[in-house]
Design a protein around this nucleic acid. Structure first.
Lengths: 82, 82
DNA sequence: ATGTGACTCCAAGTCCGTC
DNA sequence: TGACGGACTTGGAGTCACA
């Protein structure tokens, strides 16, 4: 799995866990609203600066945003992106 | 401290710890030698994809490359970038 | 073995809007 | 509230020559 995809999923999950809209998150992080939307849809490959600013607003370490989901042993290997 | 700076320092430290030259690291990561040089001098704000490729070659988690050094309580606050 | 300036190319990132 | 498009500017990605 590409790190962009893991980031996209983590971003959306963490934002929702905080009860924030894309617009609120964008505003607090000083990032454009449409760019947040694109990031969550895995359209772009963000710079570490952007990731860092988002992590700060979400109150997590950068590592949390970039963490790949643990492989589920129930699922066959062919279902995973590599 | 900006995350770019932490990344630059970590990259150089980890590369040297592996006994690799910029040229060897560049080759293994499929990146130009001069670009590695620039990253270690904090010239660029790299994308997470580049960081991920370097982490893979260095055999560490992405989080290791982006970790900020622990604040040294011996040093005064004015010596730190914030 | 590394730093640096100059250069191109196109993705990152912004800002406007509509659905 | 979020997906998505178009047009735009900035700056990362990547290469080369030279010190």
């Amino acid at each position: 799995m590409e790190i962009r995809e893991a980031f996209a999923q983590n971003l959306r999950a963490l934002r929702r866990a905080r009860g924030l809209s894309q617009e609120e998150l964008a505003h607090q992080a000083g990032i454009d609203r449409t760019y947040i939307s694109a990031l969550e849809r895995n359209v772009y490959n963000p710079s570490i600066d952007v990731v860092d600013r988002l992590a700060e607003v979400l109150g997590v370490d950068v590592a949390e945003l970039l963490k790949r989901p643990a492989a589920d042993p129930q699922r066959s290997k062919s279902e995973l992106d590599e």
